[in-house]
Design a protein around this nucleic acid. Sequence first.
RNA 1: GGCCCCAUCGUCUAGCGGUCCAGGACGUCGCCCUUUCACGGCGAAAACACGGGUUCGAGUCCCGUUGGGGUCACCA
Length: 460
Amino acid sequence: MVTRFAPSPTGFLHIGNARTGLFSWLYARHHGGKALLRIEDTDKARSTREAIDVILDGLAWLGLDWDEQVHFQSEFEARHAEVAHDLIERGAAYRCYLTPEELKERREKAQAERRPFRLTSEWRDCTAAGPEGAPFVVRLKAPREGETAIDDLVQGRVAVANAEIDDFVLLRSDGSPTYMLAVVVDDHDMGVTHIIRGDDHLNNAFRQLAIIRAMGWPEPTYAHIPLIHGPDGAKLSKRHGALGVHDYRDLGFLPEALFNYLLRLGWGHGDDEIISREQAIAWFDLDHVGKSPSRFDLKKLESLNAHYIREADDGRLAELVAERLGGEVDLDLLVRAMPELKARAHDLGQLADGARFLFAQRPLEMDDGAAALLTPESRALLGAAHRALGKVSAWEHDELEKVVREVADEAGVKLGKLAQPLRAALTGRATSPGIFDVLALLGQGESLGRIADQMVEPNE
RNA sequence: GGCCCCAUCGUCUAGCGGUCCAGGACGUCGCCCUUUCACGGCGAAAACACGGGUUCGAGUCCCGUUGGGGUCACCA
């Protein structure tokens, strides 16, 4: 059992393609078969080293690994041409000397008469040699009678009349193979048994099958997965926002969150929502892949991400946050703060944002919410707190809570009246982790300093 | 337009003829917890597109309508 994922290097790894790759990978892993990766780099202009690396990086980030070495379609070009000529010899393909202009003319004529265009090339059954030295393409002699059917693992049985399939091009006039020929040859040569891909390729399956049958090759099993749509139901495109796997990584999503989200998009396993990589491999199948396109929902991805952030190792998160914060940060402090920080972040950006106060330089800048909390009265309260906190010898959470509560009691105010100004003074914000945790994290010297920056001496 | 595919809460989905006055999750809205924000807990509103069949019985099978999508290159 061999599957393959065959992306073309377009400069980014489309989220929809990534899901197809994930399904293809999971299917192979589930059945203990081989998962192959082939880069469709026949378009020389776009297939730069960078574009290829983007795909490789993205897949690696998601944790998808591949059997054998990575294959490149461009390496097999000679083989593609060989098969095309084999097809001509078998009488299953022919040289067509129709010019692009002639083709265009016929197409436009058909369109003007509002009838579907089906090419019937006079070269199909021509036994005479073509014009001396004239350019030609090689076309498949597609069957015209009957129908072609596939038993798709996702779509079920799908049949199409052979009259719908035209004599498509196998080899261009410059001798290069078309995608249609190349995939078929590569899949066959690589021993691919299960072709799992987007259902935008469903119509191609019939054409490809025609080549396979002409060559007498074993027919692969197909599984055409519905595409991912944007929130508005239209095909996912740039105007829907982030499209590439890298975009989501940069946005602060964890790979396991995207993995889980993509897995659940178009596939389900009962009521299970949080699914680990191991469970995914154990559970994945094709009969539970839905047949209708599913819409991309950022909110659900975010909630999954929030979940995985809470689950993630503090050290790992600290490093990711440090990267985002840039400059010198105390990794140790970050790790200690992480349990408090990660409960309130949905992505790494928010996580980094929440950690910023730890490393801020005095005097702190107050945001609007914090500034509003610092009234003359609350500044006086801070003065009282400063004095009490200055005497604390055991600078830890419980002791700090006891002291702060006493200060509030003595001043005759609720804890909140003191806690909020304290938060403002200590973090420059109106929201933060628990105030006693903040004090403990910052340490006595820094805490006292930050409070002093904002307080008013009680006796002045 | 031709051909092909699809159709359960706003979204992702469970459901594979009766156990469904349709279950879970995200989102939304309440309440609780609480020093803020989160987290967590509890609860609510919210769907079988429509019309015909088949069947003792249909969200589940068939047909049609409507709506959505895909595809029609010497691109992949």
